[in-house]
Design a protein around this nucleic acid. Structure first.
Lengths: 104, 104
DNA sequence: CCGTATCCCCTAGGATACTG
DNA sequence: CAGTATCCTAGGGGATACGG
């Protein structure tokens, strides 16, 4: 691989940058169990500031890993859930955790 | 902060923190092709400062993802290569890249 | 209930320079 | 060839406070 810049389209950014952020994999793991709203997500994860959650969620949305839909119910609520791509990412996160256990 | 489910004490740190760093996956990818020395790695990746490479390599060593061995040759050289665990991680990185291509 | 707006602090990233 | 030592700064993490 003489040329990393040309042959490899894989640049820093995208999934990589998102996954590296401190809370990201917690978010994906939570949503892997079931879709949920903002505060529910916040409480389930525990310890994450709302501002940070907001930012991460936006990033994950841009990466098409998480989708956001507003329910017109009473009370009105928002629902975040994994996209098809998000499911694939969640699967990989699981594999990574298996690795840590296996070599523990 | 209620626990979402028992049996998954995955905390921030470890593999996660390491993989999130900007150059880490480049390093793993390079070593996945073949073991190599410090400067060779530096040149192959391109753009990474020696100080940063040094830091990343140390972290990857602590995570048992990369091993370091000194060859008593002339000139003396160092060789970095993936451990068994490192191979597993490299495999996952490939899968992540496949995902990005698939949903591109 | 669902967020965004600020502000502060801290540290990883990077350039540069220097040793074994 | 194989690194370590410094110094600098940009931006992410987090608390707090406030709007839809």
């Amino acid at each position: 691989m003489a040329d990393l810049r040309e042959g490899q389209p894989q640049e820093w950014g995208g999934i990589w940058e998102a996954l590296g952020c401190k809370w990201t994999f917690h978010i994906v793991r939570c949503l892997d169990h079931e879709p949920m709203g903002f505060n529910q997500l916040k409480d389930t994860i525990g310890g994450i500031p709302a501002s940070t959650l907001s930012t991460r969620l936006k990033e994950l949305g841009e990466q098409d890993i998480v989708s956001r839909s507003v329910q017109d119910t009473t009370p009105p609520s928002t629902r975040y859930e994994l996209t098809e791509k998000g499911d694939a990412v969640a699967d990989i996160i699981s594999q990574l955790e298996e690795i840590e256990e296996r070599f523990d």
